[in-house]
Design a protein around this nucleic acid. Structure first.
Ligand SMILES: [Mg+2]
Length: 214
DNA sequence: GCGACAG
DNA sequence: ATCTTGTCGC
């Protein structure tokens, strides 16, 4: 069954109503989620870091078949599954989740970080390397039609576009990302990205072809 | 119709 | 995202 953009758009429009803007209650542990590819194989990784020392307290990964292509504004339909498969394997669940991609700085206010936040009912923050939607102005990304602030630009290495996924406020999101910025990278995301590259080069077998714990 | 376009 | 190593410069 091929990817159906119209159906996917309807899903985003429906779920976008469930995005919640609220202060993050607890921020002792933060996870980073990312995915890498080799052909049609997706390698997902989740790394949990403890604040404020930034010690890695748990790591998990997933290997699966990428079935959905990358289509701008529909990234979640391609990467949410690999990310969550890794996330569910974590023994230590984080207070907050950082996702490599946008949150509400999306044409339908429902980027992958928002999608994951709504699905897990847990605070998520979107951290993207480039702009997808909105007009950049004075360190902020504004909705071209309403003028609302959708994201804030944080300098960490290069520009990082920080937006609320769900269950967070932009102020909290920015403060947390700034705290996690180390050596030009948002630490949890850098850690997840490295795991992702590492298991890809190791050519780990698909999850289904692996025995428990092997 | 044209240009933009997370990863 | 991925294709790709060493090399030039501060
Ligand atoms: Mg990524």
């Amino acid at each position: 069954m091929p990817f159906n953009a119209e159906a996917a758009r309807r899903v985003q429009e429906r779920l976008a109503k469930l995005v919640v803007f609220a202060p993050i209650p607890k921020a002792e542990t933060v996870a980073g989620l990312d995915v890498a590819y080799s052909g049609d194989v997706a390698y997902g990784a989740a790394v949990v870091v403890k604040m404020p020392a930034l010690e890695v307290v748990d790591v998990a990964c997933s290997v699966s078949k990428a079935v959905v292509p990358y289509v701008p504004t529909y990234l979640a339909f391609r990467e949410l599954s690999p990310m969550l498969r890794a996330y569910f394997k974590l023994r230590v669940k984080p207070d907050i989740i950082l996702v490599d991609g946008h949150g509400v700085a999306h044409p339908r206010r429902f980027g992958i970080a928002s999608h994951i936040g709504v699905v897990l009912k847990k605070p998520t923050i979107g951290v993207a390397k480039s702009r997808l939607y909105g007009v950049e102005e004075g360190g902020c990304v504004l909705d071209p039609s309403t003028g609302e602030v959708l994201a804030q630009v944080v300098k960490c290495g290069g520009k990082k576009y920080v937006s609320v996924g769900s269950y967070a406020t932009l102020e909290d999101a920015v403060r947390i990302v700034e705290t996690l910025c180390k050596k030009g990278d948002v630490y949890p995301l850098r850690a997840a990205h490295e795991i992702t590259q590492k298991i890809k080069k190791a050519a780990l077998p698909h999850d289904e072809d692996r025995y428990p714990c092997s």
